[in-house]
Computed example of a mutant assay.
Amino acid sequence: MEGLKVSDANLVAYVNPSKSTKVPQAVLRELSSLLFKFNETFDGVVLAYDVQIQDKVAKILPGLHPYFCVRLEAKLLLFSPKPNMLLEGKVVKLTQTSIHVIVLGFSSAVMTDEDIREEFRYKTKHGEEQYASRFHKRHVIKVGTTIRFSVKSFDEEILHISGSLVPTNTGSIGWLAKHMEDVSRIDRRSTKRGRESEGESVIVEHSEAYSLHSDQIRTSKKRKIKDES
């Protein structure tokens, strides 16, 4: 899935003197406060971390309430979705005008009716709501289905994603895994045919131009012969 990245970071943790005997625990507590929040410095939501303390001896900062300054090296797993990236999520709710999804267990995403391609139509089957493809009977989206969708925008404050199911490479992950090659092959064929038809029209235009040019040459030759006679 796109939108995930690992970042190396040099950090500084400020530890209260009362935690001087438990510095590692205090550092981990500080890092834990970063989890599942968007961080502008790292341009993403911190999902996990792996940290190493660089200084064996912490430095004490002067002041009314002195703190220990501990330098760290960390690897951070970040979630940073950008427009047009492909994400995956589990469907938790369906309505006639929207599909609601949870991504990575914490971020919500929604596809409204204008962002659901016309191939899918909403219906109720055996009391269960679903979006079913008009062209592929087994391509069905319902509650519990894991889908792939394209990112339109990401609200960093509430960690909410506006998504789209318009691209042909989006939909049910299970169905796409089995049939995406066929869909891509069909798209390539249609593109190739379009290019070939364009090439044919160019060839025809050139042949017509050549025949017209030949006629003009023959006409000019006839005129030249008459003038000489």
Rank of each mutant, 00 (worst) to 15 (best):
K125I: 13
H126T: 04
H126E: 10
H126K: 14
G127A: 08
E129I: 08
Q130A: 11
Y131R: 04
Y131H: 10
Y131D: 02
A132F: 03
A132H: 07
S133H: 09
R134T: 12
F135E: 14
F135G: 03
H136G: 01
H136E: 09
H136N: 09
K137I: 09
K137N: 14
R138S: 14
R138K: 14
R138W: 10
H139D: 13
H139A: 05
H139S: 02
H139V: 02
V140W: 10
I141Y: 06
I141T: 08
K142N: 07
K142A: 15
K142R: 14
K142I: 07
V143D: 04
V143M: 07
V143G: 05
G144R: 12
G144Y: 11
G144K: 13
G144V: 05
T145A: 09
T145I: 06
T145M: 03
R148V: 13
R148W: 05
R148K: 15
F149V: 11
S150T: 13
V151D: 00
V151H: 01
K152Y: 03
K152W: 06
K152L: 15
K152S: 06
K152G: 02
K152E: 11
F154N: 09
F154M: 12
D155M: 00
D155I: 00
D155F: 00
E156C: 11
E156W: 04
E156A: 13
E156H: 12
E156P: 05
E157Q: 04
E157W: 02
I158K: 01
I158S: 10
